[in-house]
C-alpha cells in the first residue's frame, strides 16, 4: 500500500475535522486528489452520520439503569422501605449508646449533612431514635411532618448543587408534567423503568425513591401512593382505641408501615410501627 497515499488521507481527514472544505483539503495533496476524493466524500457522509446527537431520553434511561446496577452490586437495597424494623431499631440503639458516650460533636456536625455524605446515615439514625423515644402521638406526628419537610429541603439542595445521589422523600402529587409529576415542589421524572405502585392523581400522597439529576429533577426508580387509613388522623384517638380489637395488638406491624404510621393513635408503644421506614443510607 502506498504509504504516502495513506498518510495523505489522514492529513485530509484532519483538515476536514478542523473545518476545511473538501477542495481545500485535497489542494494540499494534488497528486492524490483523484484517488482521495471519493474516499473523503464517504468520510464526510460517515462523519455526519456519526455526529448525530445522543437522544437525551436514551442517556437518561441508560443512566438510571447503570446507577441501579451499581446500587444492586453494592448489595444495597433500592428501597429502605423494605428494611427490617429490628435492624433499624438496632441502629438507633447503637446511636443512643454512642450519644450517651459523648457523641454530641458528631451529632451537631451531622445535622446539616445531605444524602450521599458520610454523616448522613448517622443523622437519619438520630432521627429514628428521636421518633422511637417520642411517646406522645401528637408530638410524634409533628416530628414526622418536620422530617418530611426536611427530606424535601435536602432534595432541593441536592438539585441546586447538581449532585447525583439516591434520595427518598414523601410528598404530595401537585401537578402532572410532560415527563412525570411535581411532588411537593420537586420535579420527578417517571420513565418506563420506574416502578409505580398505586394510581397517581393530584393530591395523592406518595413515597418517592430516585436519583437526583443534574437537570434539576429526580428520576424516580420507585413511586408509591400511600393509602391513608380511613380511620386515620382525622378520627378521635380515644374512639380509635376503643374500636380497635385487642387482638390487633398481637398482629405484626404492617411491613410497609404506611397505614399504621398515620393512624397509630392507640398509645401502645410496644406495637408502634416503625415510623421512619423511608430512611436512606
Amino acid at each position: 500500500m502506498n504509504r504516502k497515499l495513506v498518510a495523505a488521507l489522514e492529513d485530509c481527514l484532519q483538515a476536514l475535522q478542523a473545518g476545511a472544505t473538501l477542495e481545500q483539503a485535497l489542494a494540499e495533496h494534488p497528486a492524490f486528489a483523484a484517488r482521495l476524493r471519493p474516499l473523503l466524500e464517504i468520510a464526510v457522509m460517515e462523519r455526519e452520520r456519526g455526529n448525530a446527537p445522543v437522544p437525551e431520553n436514551a442517556g437518561t434511561r441508560s443512566r438510571v439503569r447503570v446507577l441501579a446496577a451499581a446500587s444492586r452490586l453494592r448489595g444495597r437495597r433500592f428501597s429502605m422501605m423494605d428494611r427490617p424494623v429490628l435492624r433499624r431499631l438496632a441502629v438507633s440503639l447503637a446511636v443512643a449508646v454512642f450519644l450517651l458516650a459523648g457523641g454530641s460533636g458528631l451529632l451537631s456536625a451531622s445535622a446539616t449533612s445531605l444524602p450521599g455524605e458520610l454523616l448522613y446515615p448517622f443523622k437519619r439514625s438520630v432521627e429514628d431514635l428521636r421518633l422511637v423515644l417520642t411517646v406522645d402521638q401528637e408530638k410524634k406526628v409533628e416530628i414526622e411532618d418536620q422530617l418530611y419537610d426536611l427530606r424535601i429541603d435536602e432534595t432541593d439542595t441536592l438539585l441546586e448543587e447538581n449532585r447525583v445521589v439516591w434520595v427518598d422523600f414523601d410528598g404530595i402529587l401537585e401537578q402532572q408534567t410532560g415527563s412525570g409529576w411535581v411532588v411537593s415542589g420537586i420535579p420527578v421524572v417517571i420513565d418506563a423503568q420506574t416502578e409505580v405502585e398505586g394510581v397517581l392523581q393530584p393530591g395523592a400522597q406518595v413515597e418517592v425513591r430516585g436519583v437526583t439529576q443534574t437537570g434539576g429533577q429526580v428520576l424516580a426508580e420507585r413511586i408509591r401512593v400511600e393509602e391513608r387509613d380511613q380511620s386515620g388522623e382525622d378520627g378521635d384517638p380515644e374512639e380509635e382505641r376503643d374500636a380497635t380489637p385487642e387482638a390487633d395488638q398481637d398482629d405484626p406491624p404492617d411491613p410497609t408501615g404506611q397505614e399504621s404510621d398515620r393512624s397509630s393513635d392507640s398509645g401502645d408503644d410496644a406495637e408502634q410501627p416503625d415510623p421512619t421506614e423511608t430512611d436512606d443510607d
Partner: peptide, 20 residues
C-alpha cells in the same frame, strides 16, 4: 468508588461516545 456519584461520573464521561 461504586457510589452513585462516581459511577455517574464515569457514565457521563464515556456514555455519549459509546452510544455513538
Amino acid at each position: 468508588r461504586l457510589d452513585p456519584q462516581a459511577v455517574a461520573g464515569i457514565f457521563d464521561r464515556y456514555y455519549p461516545q459509546v452510544f455513538r
